[in-house]
Nucleic acid binder design. Sequence first.
DNA 1: GACAGAAACGAACGTTCGTGCTATTTTGTG
DNA 2: CACAAAATAGCACGAACGTTCGTTTCTGTC
Lengths: 193, 193
Amino acid sequence: MKKGEQTKQMILEAGLSTASHSGLESVSIGSLAKATGMSKSGVFAHFESKENLQVEILKYAADLFSGGVIVPALKTEAGIPRIKALVNNWIAWTERMTGGCIFVSTSTEFSDRPGKVRKTLLGQQEDWVDCLRRIAQSAIEVGDLRKDIDCDQFAFDLYSLLLGFYLYYELLHNSDTKKRQEAALERLLADYQ
Amino acid sequence: MKKGEQTKQMILEAGLSTASHSGLESVSIGSLAKATGMSKSGVFAHFESKENLQVEILKYAADLFSGGVIVPALKTEAGIPRIKALVNNWIAWTERMTGGCIFVSTSTEFSDRPGKVRKTLLGQQEDWVDCLRRIAQSAIEVGDLRKDIDCDQFAFDLYSLLLGFYLYYELLHNSDTKKRQEAALERLLADYQ
DNA sequence: GACAGAAACGAACGTTCGTGCTATTTTGTG
DNA sequence: CACAAAATAGCACGAACGTTCGTTTCTGTC
């Protein structure tokens, strides 16, 4: 059926927005009902539990993330251009999501809370790290990075850089953030080149 | 008076523990009352609002952080030894706080929520970044780092590294995390040396 | 040991929370 | 247009939320 999916999409969109601003836990059925102009039970019927709602918000966000960050990066030529594209897409993504990247905030929010949410998130983060590693691998293959480097280490270094950017940008509102991030990326690439 | 302060301390301790595990927002007066064996109103009377409670938990944590991470690092000889001490103390701190570092989790939790909590946190994070910068500066002065480096950039790089460690350690539970962090630190020091 | 002030309690407030039900409306299909 | 199914609304529930209030118990001082 058509209508149901469409409404669900609308709810998820509102939910993602709230989650970006205030965290995934503070997305409530009631506030989502108000935001979409529906009744609480109407919203609830689509998910059957709050935990499922949270999981579906994460999956919805992952779809957007994939389409907005990963896919376009993979369309860029392998090597350093692709790495830079990925970084820029990631930054653009966190800027587009007013309130911050849901994956980062949920990671700290749910790192210690067992359940479906944590499990989903963990899988997504592992996929992301894997993505970083594969992009490093392809950069080696085209000769943009040294052959003897550890792709896992590269993934760690690159992700750390993004997390640093995130905190400086979202909380500290430091005006030099972009410059710092660029300098750190240049240093990273130079070391592995 | 004596008794009051003592009880308050006990409440803050319980609150910090909860906040580390589940986030600062999910520290509730009721659960804190249960944890300390007090009544809700008894707990409430010490803070007069939940927001004040949250702020005081942050300040309590900052005291512990200062005593456990910063002060001992400053007692170590300036330069690379001090930098390494700071990093190790920070890591030991996040490990001691089962459930994670309250400053990191609260940073993502409150980065977009105006109020006293955000203000307090922002000040603490600025102090922390400042601390990193000054430690870099002292390392330059004793000749452990190059004279021409940008201490702010060093602070960014170092903090990023810690944030990367944090996510790998707390969420991903990656067994290579310590190795990754050490490698990243070596690379950082080598570049600025 | 009396007495003042601080500290803690217990009950209640209005809200909001997530989650069940049972109706009612809306939708897509024959 | 009819009709089954899907989608949404309405209402109620128990629990937890932060907060207020009046009362009671404890604590330190003279």
